[in-house]
Amino acid sequence: MITHIVLFKLKDGIERSAPSVAEAEKFARAVGDHVPELVDWRVGWNTVDRDISYDFAAIGVLPDRAALEKYQVNAYHQESVQKWRAISDWVVVDLADS
């Protein structure tokens, strides 16, 4: 199993209440419905405000590396990526269960 974790930080000047943020969130929430390789999909806003905190997270579980590669090129996922790219910076980590 691979746990795919993405942490998003809204760009300076982008407010959570912006329509572009609402659109990106809507797409992120629906990724799990559009990527059949995902075993589990969770997204949400950070609930604790700290200087080092990111704003939004997406966590997906996939059965293997091949599924991760299909997820990465999935058209709906790529559309979601474009929406987040316009409003945020992010970091990604992919954890392989041992």
Results as ranks from 00 to 15, higher is better:
24 A>V: 01
39 V>L: 15
98 S>Q: 07
90 W>A: 04
76 Y>A: 04
38 L>Q: 01
26 K>A: 15
69 E>V: 10
16 R>L: 06
79 E>T: 12
97 D>G: 04
91 V>M: 04
31 V>I: 15
30 A>Y: 04
32 G>R: 11
40 D>M: 10
87 I>A: 07
60 G>E: 06
67 A>S: 14
87 I>Q: 05
44 G>A: 07
18 A>F: 15
43 V>S: 13
61 V>P: 00
53 S>W: 10
34 H>S: 05
97 D>F: 05
77 H>W: 14
29 R>T: 07
67 A>M: 05
39 V>K: 15
16 R>V: 13
71 Y>K: 07
26 K>F: 05
37 E>L: 08
21 V>M: 03
20 S>V: 14
80 S>N: 13
96 A>R: 05
88 S>I: 12
27 F>Q: 04
81 V>Q: 06
17 S>P: 02
42 R>Q: 02
45 W>D: 12
65 R>I: 10
47 T>W: 05
61 V>H: 02
22 A>P: 01
63 P>N: 05
18 A>P: 07
31 V>M: 08
70 K>L: 13
78 Q>V: 09
66 A>Y: 00
86 A>Q: 06
51 D>V: 07
79 E>C: 01
98 S>C: 04
59 I>R: 03
24 A>G: 09
84 W>D: 07
22 A>C: 03
62 L>G: 06
98 S>I: 13
84 W>S: 09
68 L>M: 13
20 S>I: 12
70 K>T: 10
45 W>Q: 09
67 A>V: 03
46 N>L: 06
30 A>G: 01
22 A>R: 13
66 A>H: 06
15 E>L: 14
77 H>S: 10
71 Y>H: 13
92 V>D: 01
55 D>R: 11
98 S>G: 13
57 A>C: 09
26 K>L: 12
80 S>R: 05
85 R>V: 10
85 R>G: 00
84 W>C: 06
78 Q>A: 06
67 A>H: 02
27 F>R: 06
57 A>V: 13
19 P>Y: 02
57 A>Y: 01
48 V>D: 07
85 R>C: 00
97 D>W: 04
24 A>Q: 01
58 A>W: 03
72 Q>F: 11
72 Q>K: 11
88 S>K: 05
27 F>P: 00
26 K>N: 12
76 Y>H: 06
37 E>D: 14
47 T>R: 12
54 Y>G: 05
73 V>I: 12
67 A>R: 02
20 S>F: 02
37 E>C: 12
81 V>K: 09
40 D>W: 05
50 R>S: 10
92 V>F: 01
66 A>F: 01
36 P>Q: 08
20 S>Q: 15
91 V>R: 01
69 E>H: 11
62 L>T: 06
19 P>A: 09
38 L>N: 03
80 S>D: 08
16 R>W: 02
22 A>K: 13
65 R>D: 08
31 V>Q: 08
48 V>P: 00
